[in-house]
Simulated scan of single mutants.
Amino acid sequence: MRRSDRLFDIIQRLRTASRPVTAASLAAELEVTPRTVYRDIATLQARRVPIEGAAGIGYVLRQGFDLPPLMFTIDEVEAIAVGARLVQRLRDSKLQDAAEGVLAKVATVLPDRLRSHVVTPPIYISPGMAAEAQGVDIAEIRAAIRDSRKLYIVYADKEGRETDRTIWPIAMAYYVDVTLVGAWCELRADYRNFRVERIVASRILEDRFDQANGRLFAEWSALPKEKPDSLADPADSR
Score class of each variant (00 low, 15 high):
residue 152 Y to L: 10
residue 142 R to C: 03
residue 214 G to F: 04
residue 191 Y to N: 07
residue 7 L to G: 01
residue 16 T to F: 10
residue 6 R to D: 01
residue 231 L to E: 09
residue 186 E to M: 08
residue 86 L to C: 13
residue 143 A to C: 10
residue 221 S to C: 05
residue 228 P to H: 01
residue 183 A to W: 05
residue 25 S to A: 11
residue 224 P to Q: 11
residue 98 A to D: 07
residue 190 D to V: 07
residue 228 P to Q: 03
residue 74 I to Y: 11
residue 104 A to M: 09
residue 73 T to D: 13
residue 181 V to C: 09
residue 50 P to E: 10
residue 78 E to K: 10
residue 19 R to L: 10
residue 22 T to M: 06
residue 82 V to M: 10
residue 122 P to K: 06
residue 161 R to G: 04
residue 176 V to D: 10
residue 134 Q to W: 05
residue 212 A to L: 15
residue 192 R to T: 08
residue 130 A to F: 05
residue 198 R to S: 08
residue 182 G to S: 04
residue 126 S to E: 15
residue 82 V to S: 04
residue 6 R to N: 02
residue 220 W to I: 03
residue 17 A to R: 02
residue 220 W to A: 01
residue 157 D to Y: 05
residue 223 L to T: 06
residue 35 R to V: 08
residue 209 F to V: 03
residue 65 F to D: 08
residue 220 W to Q: 01
residue 109 V to Y: 05
residue 100 E to P: 02
residue 18 S to V: 12
residue 90 L to P: 02
residue 116 S to Q: 15
residue 170 I to C: 02
residue 69 P to F: 04
residue 218 A to D: 12
residue 199 I to N: 02
residue 12 Q to T: 09
residue 12 Q to V: 10
residue 108 T to C: 09
residue 191 Y to F: 15
residue 212 A to N: 13
residue 58 G to P: 06
residue 47 R to D: 14
residue 162 E to P: 06
residue 137 D to P: 01
residue 62 R to N: 05
residue 207 D to E: 15
residue 38 Y to T: 14
residue 139 A to I: 05
residue 19 R to A: 13
residue 223 L to W: 00
residue 15 R to H: 12
residue 52 E to P: 02
residue 96 Q to L: 06
residue 105 K to D: 14
residue 83 G to T: 11
residue 119 V to C: 04
residue 102 V to L: 14
residue 134 Q to T: 14
residue 158 K to M: 14
residue 210 D to V: 02
residue 60 V to T: 15
residue 10 I to H: 06
residue 76 E to F: 02
residue 50 P to I: 10
residue 207 D to A: 15
residue 81 A to S: 07
residue 131 A to H: 12
residue 216 L to P: 01
residue 112 D to G: 05
residue 157 D to M: 03
residue 151 L to Y: 03
residue 221 S to V: 08
residue 55 A to E: 11
residue 12 Q to I: 06
residue 14 L to N: 05
residue 10 I to Q: 06
residue 69 P to G: 08
residue 236 D to W: 12
residue 16 T to S: 14
residue 6 R to I: 04
residue 143 A to S: 13
residue 220 W to L: 13
residue 25 S to D: 14
residue 28 A to N: 09
residue 153 I to W: 03
residue 86 L to Y: 03
residue 194 F to Q: 01
residue 40 D to E: 09
residue 181 V to P: 00
residue 118 V to C: 08
residue 27 A to F: 03
residue 21 V to M: 12
residue 163 T to V: 10
residue 9 D to Y: 07
residue 77 V to H: 06
residue 169 P to K: 01
residue 166 T to A: 00
residue 67 L to E: 12
residue 100 E to G: 05
residue 50 P to Y: 12
residue 163 T to K: 11
residue 83 G to W: 02
residue 146 R to W: 06
residue 152 Y to V: 01
residue 113 R to F: 14
residue 85 R to A: 00
residue 224 P to F: 10
residue 230 S to K: 12
residue 162 E to D: 06
residue 169 P to E: 07
residue 29 E to S: 11
residue 35 R to A: 14
residue 133 A to D: 03
residue 108 T to Y: 12
residue 39 R to F: 00
residue 171 A to N: 13
residue 69 P to A: 11
residue 171 A to D: 15
residue 229 D to Y: 09
residue 6 R to T: 08
residue 226 E to N: 05
residue 186 E to V: 00
residue 180 L to M: 01
residue 131 A to M: 14
residue 106 V to A: 07
residue 66 D to C: 13
residue 202 S to P: 02
residue 83 G to V: 10
residue 45 Q to S: 12
residue 8 F to M: 09
residue 47 R to L: 11
residue 120 T to C: 06
residue 208 R to V: 13
residue 21 V to D: 06
